[in-house]
Computed example of a mutant assay.
Amino acid sequence: MPLQILLPMVVIGIAGIVILLHLLGRSELARLEDEAAARRAWLREYPDTPPTRVILSHDRHAALIETAHGAGVVWPMGMDTTARYLRGAEIHRTKDGLRVDLPDFAAPRIRLRLNDEEADLWPTLMNRKDSP
């Protein structure tokens, strides 16, 4: 098949799939319905480290997790969630929340949408050395 036909077919096909998924509601971010959902999301990644405290963001798209081994965060990656410890993280305030730079090649940067109150409080909790 000539490239002049193949390339547009591939581009239109991918665009069609993206539009279809969006129309079916499959493009929205995962939402943590309650603290129990955030705990389950954390435990999927770190089953041996149960959370001692969970703080949900106002929009329920992220959760700050405290454990006996330090603080972590749960956030959406599409319709699923992922979690990381915050050891070695650099936390920066942005206009709509926080940017967390991690020494982790699998998740080098996390953008958290937080309201002003959360964006002021969370860095303090993320950096606490006296976590339970």
Score class of each variant (00 low, 15 high):
residue 1 M to A: 13
residue 2 P to V: 06
residue 2 P to N: 15
residue 3 L to T: 15
residue 3 L to R: 15
residue 3 L to A: 12
residue 4 Q to H: 14
residue 4 Q to L: 10
residue 5 I to L: 13
residue 6 L to C: 08
residue 7 L to I: 15
residue 7 L to Q: 14
residue 8 P to V: 05
residue 8 P to S: 07
residue 9 M to C: 14
residue 10 V to G: 11
residue 11 V to W: 13
residue 12 I to M: 11
residue 14 I to V: 15
residue 14 I to T: 14
residue 15 A to L: 13
residue 16 G to Y: 06
residue 16 G to E: 08
residue 17 I to R: 12
residue 18 V to Y: 10
residue 20 L to N: 14
residue 21 L to W: 11
residue 24 L to V: 08
residue 24 L to W: 14
residue 24 L to N: 14
residue 25 G to Q: 10
residue 25 G to D: 12
residue 26 R to E: 15
residue 27 S to N: 15
residue 31 R to W: 14
residue 32 L to D: 06
residue 32 L to T: 05
residue 32 L to N: 08
residue 32 L to W: 05
residue 33 E to A: 15
residue 33 E to G: 11
residue 34 D to W: 07
residue 35 E to P: 02
residue 35 E to T: 10
residue 35 E to G: 09
residue 35 E to H: 10
residue 38 A to Q: 05
residue 39 R to A: 13
residue 40 R to W: 09
residue 40 R to Q: 15
residue 41 A to S: 14
residue 41 A to Q: 05
residue 42 W to I: 03
residue 44 R to D: 15
residue 44 R to E: 15
residue 45 E to D: 11
residue 46 Y to Q: 06
residue 46 Y to V: 03
residue 46 Y to M: 02
residue 47 P to V: 07
residue 48 D to E: 15
residue 49 T to Q: 10
residue 50 P to N: 08
residue 51 P to W: 03
residue 52 T to A: 08
residue 54 V to P: 00
residue 54 V to D: 11
residue 54 V to L: 04
residue 54 V to R: 02
residue 56 L to E: 06
residue 57 S to E: 08
residue 57 S to G: 13
residue 57 S to F: 03
residue 59 D to N: 10
residue 60 R to D: 11
residue 63 A to T: 02
residue 65 I to E: 00
residue 66 E to W: 02
residue 67 T to M: 01
residue 68 A to D: 13
residue 68 A to N: 11
residue 69 H to D: 13
residue 71 A to E: 00
residue 72 G to Q: 03
residue 72 G to V: 02
residue 72 G to C: 02
residue 73 V to Q: 01
residue 75 W to K: 01
residue 77 M to A: 11
residue 77 M to C: 05
residue 79 M to I: 06
residue 81 T to R: 00
residue 81 T to E: 04
residue 81 T to P: 00
residue 84 R to E: 09
residue 86 L to Y: 03
residue 87 R to A: 10
residue 87 R to F: 07
residue 88 G to C: 05
residue 89 A to S: 06
residue 91 I to C: 02
residue 92 H to I: 12
residue 93 R to W: 07
residue 93 R to G: 07
residue 93 R to I: 04
residue 94 T to H: 01
residue 96 D to H: 10
residue 96 D to T: 15
residue 97 G to K: 00
residue 98 L to W: 01
residue 99 R to A: 12
residue 100 V to I: 13
residue 101 D to W: 05
residue 102 L to R: 06
residue 104 D to I: 01
residue 105 F to P: 01
residue 107 A to H: 09
residue 107 A to L: 08
residue 107 A to E: 12
residue 112 L to D: 01
residue 112 L to W: 01
residue 113 R to W: 07
residue 114 L to H: 00
residue 117 E to G: 11
residue 118 E to F: 00
residue 118 E to N: 04
residue 118 E to I: 01
residue 120 D to N: 13
residue 122 W to I: 01
residue 124 T to V: 11
residue 125 L to A: 03
residue 127 N to E: 14
residue 127 N to G: 12
residue 128 R to M: 03
residue 128 R to I: 03
residue 128 R to N: 09
residue 129 K to A: 12
residue 129 K to I: 07
residue 129 K to R: 14
residue 130 D to E: 10
residue 131 S to W: 11
residue 131 S to Q: 09
residue 131 S to Y: 09
residue 132 P to E: 11
residue 132 P to C: 05
residue 132 P to N: 11
